[in-house]
Simulated assay, not measured.
Amino acid sequence: MRRRSLLLAAVPAGLVTLAGCGDDKSDSSKAAASPSASASVSAAPPPKIVDGPLPAITAGTKFGEKPTVAKGTGDPSEKLAVKTVIAGGGRTIAENDFIQANYLGQIWSTAKVFDNSYDRHRPLLMQLAQGSIIDGWRYALAGKKVGSRVEIAVPPTWGYGKAGNPQAGIKGTDTLVFVIDLIDAFNSKSSSKGKPVEQLVAQGGATLPKVGTNTDGAAPKITVPKSDPPKKLVSEYVLEGDGAELKADQAILCQFKGVVWDGGKTFEQTYDSGRLSQFSLEQMQQAVKGLAQGLTGKKVGSRVMIVVPPDLGYGDTPPAGGAVKKGSTLVFSVDILAAM
């Protein structure tokens, strides 16, 4: 991958955890117990999945409500217990998809809650892939539908292993109970589903690029005019979503395509690559400042066209060996799929 490429600046799948994206009041021990695979066992064979035993959900029983879960009764199964509490009607989740979910996790034997996303009001956004999330989630959620509430009991083998997670008070013998609300899922074929808006043809005396409005997961066509680029940052909706506006401290999951103004050559994109890009806007400020600024305040679910002048892009130090040269103006089409 080229030096200082956009994807190199992106956070690799699974590294944007609750610790990195929660609010400043998040407890560090809770963040350490998120479903990140940092302490999980990845070499274990696939578990046998059974339907119980599982403790009762005694309050907060609706999808999206913070649940209260009873203490486990008796000994938990040595297998992975999985139950669909509420069946959703969305698309089926596959391994390697990114999932957006709210969840609560507690210890079987004590009912001690070690983490939950409901109180943070920022759902988890993570890839359902080996090395990105604990294996209990990976095996339990593959095949479930978006809109479902799923309860699982994860033995140590498919959780945090014999080492447990001491910082969170999880011992190496603890079975963990999770209630998970599956809000959405995304893969490399996902694209914005926002509504097309009339695109500006000029701004500040400069003619603007035109971006395609297809929503089939294929790369949108970016048509760059054969004229001088605008000297200031441009950020405009192509498809306007109905999600919340992005804040500068959030991380996003997106599809994107970047071209240089002179000649319109693509220098990097996620489309047709088999992957998505996941990065924090704060980190992007250090790589392509104009991209971070152009995305801040835009709605989740949108496609945004951003024209980045050299002083807010790579300036005089472009990635080596690529289409971006010194002083290049960059044009991006970004599908904001989700935020955390």
Rank of each mutant, 00 (worst) to 15 (best):
D23I: 00
V304G: 02
D135C: 02
G136K: 07
I336K: 00
A44E: 13
L312F: 15
P76M: 13
V82S: 15
P156E: 04
I252S: 12
M1V: 11
D51H: 12
M284K: 04
D27G: 14
Q269D: 07
V50A: 08
K231D: 12
Y271E: 09
Q199I: 13
L128G: 00
V334L: 06
I152K: 00
L291I: 11
Q278E: 15
V177R: 11
A13Y: 09
V211T: 09
N116V: 06
K257H: 03
D181T: 03
G301M: 01
S38P: 00
T17P: 07
Q167M: 06
A292G: 07
I93S: 02
A287M: 11
Q199H: 06
G243W: 07
K145H: 08
S277H: 02
G297I: 14
P166Y: 14
V150F: 11
A37L: 03
L182M: 07
L128Q: 01
R2Y: 11
K298W: 04
Q106A: 10
M284W: 01
M340R: 03
A13W: 05
P53C: 01
A168M: 02
V307M: 00
G147P: 09
A338F: 01
F256T: 04
T61Y: 07
S190F: 06
G194Y: 04
I222L: 13
P76A: 10
K210A: 15
P196F: 04
P155N: 06
D228K: 08
D97T: 04
E78H: 15
F98H: 14
Q283G: 12
S77Q: 01
V16S: 08
G290S: 07
S26I: 14
G20F: 03
G131P: 13
A101D: 01
P196K: 05
S40Q: 00
N187I: 04
R275V: 11
S235M: 04
I107C: 09
E198W: 01
L141S: 03
V288L: 15
V154L: 10
K231Y: 01
D272T: 06
A323D: 14
E268H: 00
G74P: 06
E198Y: 05
F267T: 00
G164E: 12
I133C: 08
P310W: 12
K257M: 01
N165T: 06
S273E: 04
A251S: 13
P229K: 03
A37P: 02
A202M: 08
F186A: 10
V82W: 09
D97H: 13
G89Q: 05
S280H: 05
S5Y: 03
G22Y: 01
V260H: 04
L104P: 10
D335H: 02
G194L: 08
A185V: 06
R149D: 09
A87T: 15
L291G: 08
A323L: 10
L8H: 12
I306C: 14
A163D: 08
Q286W: 10
K325D: 06
A320Y: 13
P155V: 04
P76T: 13
D242N: 13
G297C: 14
Y103V: 08
N96D: 08
L176D: 09
A163Q: 14
I180A: 12
D184E: 10
M126K: 12
V238L: 07
